[in-house]
Amino acid sequence: MAEARLMWVEQLGRRTLGLVAEAGYLSALLAESLYWLFVGSFQRQPVRVSAVFSEMMRAGVNAIPIVFLLSFSIGIMLAIQGIHTLRTFGAESQVVIGIALSITREFGPLITGIVVAGRTGSALAARIGTMVVSEEIDALRVMGIQPVRYLVSPVLLAMLVMLPALTVMADFAGLLGGAVYSALDLGISYGAYADRVISVLKTGDVLQGLTKSCVFATIVTLVGVANGFSVSGGAEGVGRATTRSVVLAISGIVIADMVFTWFLNR
């Protein structure tokens, strides 16, 4: 019995140490990526602009249809639920307030973050993992090319630009979804809906969502890259890293969202 309890404590200790080590690694990765972004040019090792644009295309522009579709659907769902709930109090005309605040503060950045984690985070882990397995990362190192500068910094910069941009689009799509359903159910005109949204929303509400999206961009990039770099064991290892990357990134996004919401709304 005592031995089993000791084993449990030992396991807990090991996992805690593993978590601390992983957090340390992610911090070091972030620091090195930012170092190359800001200092690389002065050391004649700039981050490749073409790679930044290519990542912006891959992570951002290509994600527009799915982010738009999901945000539009979320907007409709919020309108349906909001109208159904508020009808109990005869206050269904106030649904616009709920939709506007929920979308800009919460659902816009959250949906964007989750979609990007599923698309870009997993692709990043798979791409870097495959490069590790095929010795491409070692090849970069022995050619005197820092893998973090060459592979990670462009992605981080692209994500920090594109995730807020996608979030703004997701906000519009969500609000549009809400507008369409409100118009159908309550007969609110699009003009009146827009007026109400503008009067309800403050700059801080939108900024709150955009700040979150920057944090989500950092989480998705670092988790994807770290899992890619840690690949061992060939194709199976790449598959494991990809799955782990998506699960950890989405968990990280939701937990970070909760912490942010708590801090920003107290």
């Binding site: 495959t130 490069m131 095929s134 010795e135 491409e136 070692d138 090849a139 970069l140 022995v142 050619m143």
Partner: peptide, 10 residues
């Protein structure tokens, strides 16, 4: 350096 599998960036 020339690696065993080439390690060309795919």
């Amino acid at each position: 350096v020339s690696f065993q599998g080439g390690a060309l960036l795919s």
